[in-house]
Each structure stands twice: as structure tokens, then as C-alpha cells.
């Protein structure tokens, strides 16, 4: 079972952070500890978000899909975080529009992710309000179940 894209320790429920940087520094810890990414991954994700924001105006909860260049990734992993209080993030596409983000899918994607279509799988649930709601309200185990059965990560 080495191929799991999301393990229990990659799921963060109801965390309390005040900004994006704080969020990323917290949720990348297991990735670094497990050797899935290089040390500077968090820093690179934060930097990239400034230039290329990843907020997505989904309903009923705003989602963000931060990621960075594949060279900082050793092993594909998807980290999922739900936030107790939403953080403000810019919308992808550079319209300077800001949204409240409550669910974050941090994508650690290496070159080999293209065959796996990880983003495509995620895209399949972004317009499903009931799935986003169940993730937002779910326990760690519940979210894990959704990622396996409904997103097929």
C-alpha cells in the first residue's frame, strides 16, 4: 500500500490558522517527515501562490489547490485540510478577486502525476456541493473514506 495519495496523517481537520503561510508550514510537516517532498517545498508553495494564486470559487465552501513545481516533490501526495475559520485567498486566474477558503487540497505532484490525473479526479468533486460539505464537516476518518471512495485518490 505504498501508493496511497492521501494517508491519515495527510488529513487535517478544523485547524486554526490565520493565514496561508501558517497553514502551509503546518500541513507540510508530514510530507517533509515522510520524505515525500524536499525541505524547501513549503517555501516554494508559498512563493508560487503569491504569483499564481489557486483559490477556487466553489460552493458552498471556497477551495484552494496550492502546488508547486514537480522538482520539489519526490512522491505524489495530496494533503487535505479543513479550516475552522476560512482564510482569504486570491482566485486562480489573476483577476485579483479574493474569496474565503475553507477546504485546502495541497498537491505535491511529481512528473509522474500526469498518468494518474490527480487534478482531474479532484475536479470531479469541486462542483459537488454535498461532497464539499461532507468534507468540511467530516472527521479525519470520514474525509479519508471520501478520498478513497469518491475521489479515488
Amino acid at each position: 500500500m505504498n501508493d496511497l495519495l492521501t494517508e491519515l496523517n495527510n488529513i487535517f481537520v478544523d485547524i486554526e490558522v490565520s493565514n496561508f503561510e501558517e497553514l502551509i508550514l503546518l500541513i507540510t510537516k508530514p510530507l517533509v517527515a515522510d520524505g515525500d517532498v524536499v525541505e524547501e517545498f513549503a517555501e516554494q508553495v508559498i512563493k508560487r501562490e503569491e504569483n499564481f494564486p489557486t483559490g477556487l470559487p466553489t460552493e458552498p465552501y471556497g477551495v484552494a489547490i496550492p502546488h508547486t513545481d514537480s522538482k520539489f516533490v519526490r512522491k505524489n501526495k495530496v494533503t487535505i485540510a479543513t479550516l475552522k475559520q476560512p482564510i482569504e485567498m486570491e482566485v486562480m486566474g489573476g483577476t485579483d478577486e479574493k474569496i474565503d477558503v475553507s477546504i485546502v487540497f495541497l498537491l505535491a505532484l511529481g512528473q509522474s502525476n500526469k498518468q494518474l490525473n490527480i487534478l482531474q479526479k479532484l475536479m470531479g468533486i469541486l462542483n459537488k456541493e454535498d461532497v464539499l460539505t461532507r468534507i468540511k464537516e467530516g472527521s479525519k476518518e470520514k474525509i479519508y473514506e471520501i478520498t478513497k471512495n469518491e475521489i479515488q485518490l
Binding site: F52, N113, Q120
Partner: peptide, 13 residues
């Protein structure tokens, strides 16, 4: 932005 995540998914769609 970098060609790693979104372009392939959008292209296919």
C-alpha cells in the same frame, strides 16, 4: 502557470 497541474486537465476537458 507552470504546466504541472492544470493545463493537462483543462486540455482534455
Amino acid at each position: 502557470a507552470t504546466g504541472i497541474a492544470t493545463s493537462t486537465a483543462v486540455t482534455e476537458k
